[in-house]
């Protein structure tokens, strides 16, 4: 009869168990983030969150995160099913690492936020944020400078941001008197404007929703602005006049035609 030597230093099943679930949690968290990024891409909601220049980054990151979770899953599978792989993996040195949270917390938080993100549909900002951030008809010096300024654009082709950029270059409102306007945007009722004025506005984005800022032009109406509630999207046609509002001369659209439109897929201007 041969006596088999008792294997020494058997891995304790309990510890392996908790380590196993922690790695599973990591894999789930990373994979869910990958899915979330791809979901925003495929549903077009990325438009609300990012400037188009950086969308490829988020899309690529989504794919990479999915691939990463897959690799990690394969590694985990090898370690749990093949003893030699497990022993070999244990023999590798671990990198010194600093942790702010206990191990499971971070992954749990990442997973929870990603799952929540899958349920949540980002909404573009509206008049409330615009009023809070301060709508202007000037681009402050700190703002991104015009990327493509074409003075030859005919007035009726200018969007709200084109008008603002034009004003930025030549700020005298009288210079534009009588030019035709045809712009789209959402309605704001700034408290400092009289009741027969509203502001037609757009958000401009340079990087992500964190830095969107509103720009707008005052619109002079025939009647009261209450006919056009805040956040309604309008196409405004009219001609340019100069009005003194709140003690300052402003380029204003004298509206001749207001048409309610659908909120565009991509609410920002660039």
């Amino acid at each position: 009869m041969t006596v088999r030597p008792k294997p020494i230093a058997q891995p304790q099943p309990r510890r392996l168990g908790s380590a196993f679930w922690l790695v599973v949690l990591d894999i789930l968290a990373i994979a869910t983030w990958g899915v979330l990024l791809l979901k925003y891409w495929l549903t077009g909601k990325l438009n609300v969150l990012l400037h188009p220049n950086y969308m490829w980054l988020a899309n690529t990151a989504g794919i990479c995160l999915l691939a990463l979770s897959l690799l990690k899953a394969v590694q985990l599978l090898q370690i749990t099913t093949q003893r030699s792989a497990r022993n070999h993996f244990r023999s590798l040195p671990t990198m010194q690492h600093f942790s702010l949270f206990p191990r499971g917390w971070s992954s749990a938080m990442l997973l929870a936020v990603a799952v929540f993100g899958l349920q949540f549909t980002p909404q573009p900002f509206a008049s409330e944020v615009a009023l809070n951030r301060g709508v202007t008809d000037t681009l402050a010096m700190t703002r991104s400078q015009p990327q493509s300024f074409r003075s030859t654009t005919s007035p009726e082709e200018r969007s709200v941001i084109d008008w603002i950029r034009t004003l930025d270059v030549y700020p005298e409102p009288d210079a534009y008197t009588g030019q035709q306007a045809n712009v789209e945007g959402f309605v704001i009722h700034p408290p400092e404007l009289p009741n027969n004025y509203l502001m037609i506005s757009r958000f401009v984005i340079t990087c992500c929703a964190a830095d969107t800022y509103p720009v707008g032009l005052p619109v002079k109406l025939e009647g009261n602005r209450s006919a056009y509630p805040q956040d309604t999207w309008l196409r405004v046609k009219g001609s340019m006049i100069t009005e003194t509002l709140d003690g300052q001369r402003h380029l204003t659209i004298q509206a001749s035609e207001l048409e309610e439109i659908e909120e565009p897929e991509n609410p920002y201007e660039y």
Binding site: L37, L49, L50, A58, T60, A210
Partner: peptide, 23 residues
């Protein structure tokens, strides 16, 4: 409610922009 929605949109926008660089 709108405020909560705005905060969440801002939150996810920051994350979506930052995660590629983090990666």
């Amino acid at each position: 409610m709108t405020q909560l929605n705005n905060a969440l949109t801002l939150f996810f926008s920051l994350l979506v922009e930052a995660i590629p660089f983090l990666l």
